[in-house]
Design a protein around this nucleic acid. Structure first.
Lengths: 152, 152
DNA sequence: GCAACGTAGGTGATGTGTCAACTATTCCCG
DNA sequence: CGGGAATAGTTGACACATCACCTACGTTGC
């Protein structure tokens, strides 16, 4: 438990490995679930969530990339593909000639509204239903601490 | 808090979003750190960890894929690339003519031994150093619960 | 022993992410 | 104002992941 040593304690290492495993299992499970219930990927869903979060259903590209923690170029490619499927559309920004918005379409809204309930249900079943209030609270505290560390 | 409703409670949703964000931030941070300190990717590292975990430094492909939660074909492609860089080598399995091992090479061992300390240190700094013993224990309990749910 | 089926692993085409470079615009400051 | 630096977004080449399919071997049951 000495901070100068580079290694993790036995307990930390065990938790860490289980955590990594849980994350990848959870992601694949949610991803499979999403694909089978709708024709959205988890990534598509993430984009659409951000767009429905905001009243006018459109967000500046860079802001969206920040919220998703994606690279700008990745988002640009992804938007291109989603645009091709009619889920979003690009809109130009009059305030800033360089800028652009990604805007959700009617079809996009329909898609996320169809996908959301079963996804939320799955998240509950796999993650939250078994957690006590105290565990939920601790989990929140942990994520905040880690996010705090990463900022710094 | 009714299990029949598909939706997440306000508190759950907030924790969930922070959790997702934390995961993607943490992964990018660790990935960047790994790349800058060694010439391994986080994925390479994961493979090598599994191989050093076992006395003879070789694991059957399918078992390795299971431990990493990767598809077999993904692993096969990845092994091919790592083999090209001299980090691992394929070995045939005499017990089962279909089978194969992935085995760590001397160079692979050197690579992971060089990369491990700073990676472990980063994991400690970003994740564990701020956590109390109780939080660590709760985190372990949570991962076990979720993993349990996913198995079922 | 051999036909039908299951399993281990590999392959190539296609989809997605990353990186470096690029254009167009805005900002800053003399 | 004007010119260099910074910023928003896109693009194309390349790296990696996924999917459907393939081969080779093993297992089972007749």
């Amino acid at each position: 438990m000495n901070s100068d040593e580079p290694w993790l304690s036995q307990a930390q290492q065990q938790v860490w490995r289980r955590w990594l495993l849980m994350n990848s299992r959870l992601t694949s499970a949610l991803s499979r679930g999403m694909q089978s219930e709708s024709d959205l990927s988890l990534q598509d869903f993430g984009v659409l969530v951000q767009l429905t979060d905001v009243p006018d259903g459109r967000v500046r590209i860079a802001e969206l990339a920040g919220a998703l923690n994606w690279e700008r170029s990745r988002l640009s490619h992804h938007i291109t593909r989603m645009e091709g499927r009619g889920l979003v559309r690009r809109e130009e920004c009059t305030q800033d000639g360089r800028g652009a918005f990604a805007a959700i379409t009617t079809k996009g809204r329909a898609a996320i509204e169809e996908a959301a309930p079963s996804h939320a249900c799955m998240v509950r079943r796999l993650v939250f239903d078994d957690l006590t209030d105290e565990e939920l609270q601790t989990l929140g505290a942990i994520t905040d601490k880690v996010l705090g560390r990463i900022e710094a």
